[in-house]
Amino acid sequence: MLKYIIKRIILMIPVIIIMTLIVFSIFYFAPGDPVSRIAGPNVTPEVYESIMKKYGLDQPFVVQYFRYIKSVVEGDLGVSILQDRPVIEMIRERLPVTLQIGLLGFIITFIIAIPAGVIAAVKKNTIVDYLCMSGSLLGIAIPTFWLGMLLLYVFAYKLRWFPISGYGTIKHLILPSFAIGLTNAAITARMVRSSMLEVLKQDYVRTARSKGLSEKTVVYRHALKNALIPIITLMGLRLGWIIGGSVALEIIFSIPGIGRLMVDAILARDYPVVQGAMIVLTSSIILANILADILYTVVDPRIRYG
């Protein structure tokens, strides 16, 4: 088990290197540079040159890239060109904000998706099943940002139950978390349903029933536990999606999270920030997947890694 985890962590390195190369190439070859943002749109050529030089932006691609990789290996994610602050410090400020929304979104996903999926599976082909599944179809079809705008309009602007923008209290987190949680729950509920249907057909479920156990015990103690295994993989993979979805939400709800940090940095061509944030995000997505693998062995002791 330990050997497996170490192997997976070592495998992260090439993934991250390839990712940095891709991001770096995009930034290098895309038009635009951070200078006009620092010095204003009407910058004179001499100031322009001096700023390009100061940050080594006048160097060829290979030199710039290897200089960057070298500093990353040394544990330094560099300094933001625009804010003149260590990138790691900026990520440390912003990441927890996004994680809070993501975590709350995850909890909402589970609270909605598991009961909905289980009920739909148990009451298969009844009106309850159809209602749950058409609701989930709707959830899949609605983009997260649009749901966010809708929630904002109804609950914050019209009803005024929640603040419209900002960050600081749990009230600020609820609407964006719901926007993430609801769309995510839609997909998860379908997975739970089909996985449950699969499990309910198994022999051990029939055995449990024939033992005379109540239907509730059969469904929740025997069936659900096994049905959750594929859901765990799905959740690991959804982490990246949640962070991607929160970019739009952070703009709509004015939340200073890592998504907005990245968007601002991309528009301003502040590449050390984008690179740093991408490295942190890529690593956390890979780590989440490793965690999902470990959780497997907890849920299903038959699974072993070697």
Partner: peptide, 13 residues
């Protein structure tokens, strides 16, 4: 001084 990047959100606020 509050930063609100989205135009619609600014107007609603």
């Amino acid at each position: 001084l509050k930063i609100i990047p989205d135009e619609n959100t600014r107007i609603m606020e």
